[in-house]
Simulated scan of single mutants.
Amino acid sequence: MKEAYISDQSFDAINFGQSPLEKGEYENCIFSNCNFEYADLSEFRFTDCEFIGCNMSMAKLVSTAFRDVYFKDSKMFGLQFNDCNEFGLSFRFEGCSLNNSTFYKTSLKKTSFKNSKLIEVDFEACDLSNAFFMNCDLSGAIFENTNLEKVDFRSSFNYTINPESNRLKKAKFSLSEVHGLLYKLDIEIERNS
């Protein structure tokens, strides 16, 4: 059975949980306000696509290819990005909720996360070098054996990062959130009034 190749199309307010998206390759497509919750997107290929205001929570991503994909204002709970096809994997997130998602051992070099909730996201053993976290909530996010070289955390908050078990060379942090680096030392930091 030949897989579909769809390009330059817009999909608006479609519930792909009820009527599944045709398996294949999607290039330069826009998905607006679509529901992919629990959808099986295994082995789909998305190139230069945008997902705006979509619910992708718990979608299955085994060997899914995301190449230059933009996610905006989307609900993306519990996604296993570590199952994706690694070849050419690149995406950026703005205004998204990625709570409880996993990027374990994924290469996320230069990935941009803006105004997003990344609560309890697993970044263990990832390469996040040169990534950018702008105004992101990183409560409970896991950074362990993670390459965080040249990562910009200056406007993000609620992170806890152990400098002993992560690579932090030239990473950028704000003074107001420095306690997220020093928590392991069990010291008290007092703010001047």
Rank of each mutant, 00 (worst) to 15 (best):
residue 153 F to Y: 12
residue 147 N to F: 09
residue 129 S to H: 11
residue 81 F to S: 11
residue 92 R to Y: 10
residue 135 N to E: 10
residue 95 G to Q: 05
residue 96 C to E: 01
residue 83 D to A: 09
residue 58 M to Q: 14
residue 71 F to L: 12
residue 78 G to P: 05
residue 117 K to W: 03
residue 173 F to R: 11
residue 170 K to D: 14
residue 123 F to A: 07
residue 53 G to H: 12
residue 133 F to S: 09
residue 131 A to M: 11
residue 124 E to I: 01
residue 127 D to G: 02
residue 110 K to E: 15
residue 57 S to A: 06
residue 136 C to N: 12
residue 60 K to C: 06
residue 83 D to E: 14
residue 132 F to A: 04
residue 82 N to T: 00
residue 157 F to W: 13
residue 85 N to V: 01
residue 67 R to Q: 14
residue 45 R to I: 08
residue 56 M to K: 01
residue 100 N to D: 15
residue 155 S to N: 13
residue 122 D to R: 02
residue 137 D to T: 03
residue 146 T to W: 06
residue 94 E to D: 15
residue 99 N to L: 01
residue 46 F to Q: 05
residue 58 M to I: 01
residue 55 N to I: 12
residue 77 F to T: 08
residue 157 F to A: 02
residue 72 K to W: 03
residue 93 F to I: 14
residue 131 A to H: 11
residue 138 L to W: 09
residue 104 Y to C: 01
residue 172 K to E: 13
residue 108 L to H: 10
residue 130 N to H: 14
residue 74 S to F: 05
residue 159 Y to D: 04
residue 113 F to W: 12
residue 45 R to H: 10
residue 130 N to P: 00
residue 78 G to L: 08
residue 172 K to F: 03
residue 94 E to H: 05
residue 56 M to G: 01
residue 100 N to K: 13
residue 159 Y to E: 04
residue 128 L to C: 15
residue 44 F to G: 03
residue 93 F to D: 01
residue 43 E to N: 14
residue 48 D to H: 11
residue 51 F to P: 05
residue 61 L to A: 13
residue 171 A to S: 15
residue 134 M to Y: 13
residue 61 L to W: 07
residue 161 I to S: 10
residue 115 N to Y: 13
residue 119 I to G: 00
residue 140 G to F: 05
residue 126 C to R: 06
residue 43 E to F: 11
residue 122 D to F: 02
residue 151 V to W: 08
residue 164 E to R: 05
residue 76 M to I: 03
residue 93 F to P: 01
residue 74 S to P: 08
residue 165 S to T: 14
residue 65 A to L: 12
residue 140 G to S: 04
residue 175 L to I: 14
residue 121 V to M: 08
residue 104 Y to K: 14
residue 74 S to K: 04
residue 153 F to T: 06
residue 157 F to Q: 05
residue 42 S to R: 07
residue 61 L to G: 11
residue 119 I to Q: 12
residue 168 L to S: 02
residue 78 G to W: 07
residue 68 D to V: 03
residue 54 C to Q: 04
residue 172 K to M: 11
residue 158 N to M: 06
residue 132 F to R: 12
residue 51 F to W: 05
residue 118 L to E: 03
residue 154 R to N: 05
residue 77 F to Y: 15
residue 111 T to L: 04
residue 48 D to P: 00
residue 123 F to R: 06
residue 48 D to A: 09
residue 147 N to I: 13
residue 139 S to W: 06
residue 73 D to I: 00
